[in-house]
Nucleic acid binder design. Structure first.
Lengths: 324, 324
DNA sequence: TAGATATGCCAACTATAAAAGACGTAGCGA
DNA sequence: TCGCTACGTCTTTTATAGTTGGCATATCTA
């Protein structure tokens, strides 16, 4: 790999001049500039970003810590985050914590060692202490913690709309399949909204919880099968995620339940899969692209030393398709 | 952020001593070691990986260049690649090229500037020249190029099995929905196998091609609708990807075609979605996990200066589910 | 002739690593 | 007993690739 010295030698100037050309600083004649550019091209020179980062104390790296990219929601989110980061000249260091809090801790330390300029965290197991002694800019996605700013969709409203839709469409016995409720996350507002609406409307209702580590479709299916075993006459399900909702469709087929006649389903997220399954999923659309954009915006503003709002709630939309 | 100097000062030794403790090199008395560790702990010190990388000429970073993580196949692949990389102490810099060759070029330059130790490329638009002047270790996934080692599933055999299954199950008029055939990729062997088997067995057959940039479900559906408009009596489809196959299911429902009675479908990949849709997809399973493992293995061996085999074909499996 | 423009030179700086050297002590042979 | 080597521990110096600032030295222009 050629260094700035090789370029200087080839162009017949000093490293100072090359550095000036690279950074557009000081006075440079067009002739010299051209010579330097030509030398760089000939040598196929790429400035060593490590050395620059070291000096500037800025790496243009953002750490993205999520449970798992293989989950469509995080995959889509990651894609948009990468998109916006790239537009601003930042790069993404990808970390899958696998919902394992020790791996999460290790990853945060690793990201610090690599001098990332900020961390976007969409992972859920971490305890208080580990966040707090990180002085880096952080943005959480769908997660509360102390004074760390977070981005989330309007989960409570989403839960209201979903539950109301089921009742309005005539469901008499409804269930909610929630994420892990032990964690204090914004997503739990979906659960709260479900409870609130069902109680208020006087509709019989149940809640089942998915486990912390289950991203496996077979596990989701098992949960749904167990639910129907206990309550075969459930006629409406609000699932806290489209993947779970799709699993409900799959199990409903096994049990010969007609959708939406015998069973109505509302998901959450509106990932691409929601429009791919048959029947297509009615779901609460999270603005994934906007969540990504907001997260990047909040990180960059913190990197620039700005204070940012702690709460960043983005609007949801109820998308009615064929399962209701 | 505390530096090694701060630790040295706190422990009452020189930076060299701290460095020795950190790197387990040379002679260190237990007393000194303990003092240093205590100082590191007190200061919550994390060695600056940028400075280490600069000196060592090794970053422990691997660039991953793919069309888009939001596609489930790449999402699952990325997840495994990250998993194996992490096990070996490497980190992943994620780049979505969006199938745009200029962005691809920019990304490769960026990765070089960041001194990545190697690049895994699953992207498809890049031209010859741009690869060649990269002296970095590279591994391609599902892509041929000159003397760059690649990993791919046994596409030809997969195509054979898929096509034979359709014919064996009684299909009389079959179609293949391929990826973009302009690119010279291993995936085109699915197309070749389809042609070969259909011709050999004397079965009427058609091929439609998806466009380069279409990862959009609506685009897939449109392609399928057009196919059925032209050939309403097609009774078997081999789709070159599960997402396309799922789109076929969706369109078949629109057209009131019964699966598998009126229409049989075989996909390719066996992403999680294949088992989620209803009816569940018969598909050719690519060993995504093994592809990831192999790609990391090949990159690491190249980083260590080893020569590696150019061709790395991994076995596929036909998974029969409900669409055949 | 002053000021702007253009370039060079040198040193300091970023955080860490590693080779070489310094220092005191111990062991051993002549 | 002197001189040599070995040893363990720590320091000094140099290196990594690039940035920056001060200062010197030109040349050009108003």
């Amino acid at each position: 790999m050629p260094t700035i010295k090789d370029v200087a030698k080839k162009a017949g100037v000093t490293v100072t001049t090359v550095s000036r050309v690279l950074n557009n600083r000081g006075y440079i004649s067009e002739v010299t500039r051209k010579k330097v550019y030509e030398a760089m091209k000939e040598l196929n020179y790429q400035p060593n970003e490590l050395a620059r980062s070291l000096y500037r104390k800025k790496s243009y790296l953002i750490g993205l810590l999520i449970p798992n990219v293989s989950h469509p929601f995080f995959a889509e989110l990651t894609s948009f985050i990468e998109y916006y980061a790239y537009q601003e000249g930042y790069k993404i260091l990808l970390c899958n914590s696998g919902q394992d809090s020790s791996k999460e801790k290790e990853y945060i330390d690793m990201l610090k060692r690599h001098q990332v300029d900020g961390i976007i965290i969409g992972s859920h197991t971490l305890e208080a202490e580990q966040y707090l002694n990180v002085k880096l800019p952080i943005v959480a996605i769908d997660r509360y913690y102390s004074n760390i700013p977070y981005v989330a969709s309007d989960n409570y409203k989403g839960g209201i709309l979903a539950t109301k839709l089921l009742i309005q469409k005539g469901c008499k016995k409804i269930a909610h399949i929630s994420g892990p409720l032990i964690l204090n996350t914004p997503a739990n507002n979906r659960y709260k909204a479900f409870k609130d609406v069902a109680t208020q409307e006087g509709v019989e209702h149940y809640v089942v919880e998915t486990k912390l580590n289950s991203f496996e479709i077979e596990e989701f299916k098992k949960i749904v099968r167990d639910l129907f075993k206990e309550h075969p006459d459930i006629d409406g399900i609000f699932a806290s995620g489209d993947l779970i909702a799709a699993s409900v469709i799959s199990v409903a087929k096994e049990l010969n339940k007609k959708i939406p006649q015998d069973l109505k389903i509302v998901g959450y997220d509106d990932i691409n899969v929601a429009n791919l399954v048959v029947p297509s999923l009615t779901t609460v659309r999270q603005p994934i692209k906007e969540i990504a954009r907001k997260a990047i915006e909040l990180i960059l503003r913190q990197i620039d030393g700005e204070k940012v709002e702690k709460e960043n709630i983005l609007p949801i939309t109820l998308i009615e398709r064929e399962t209701t």
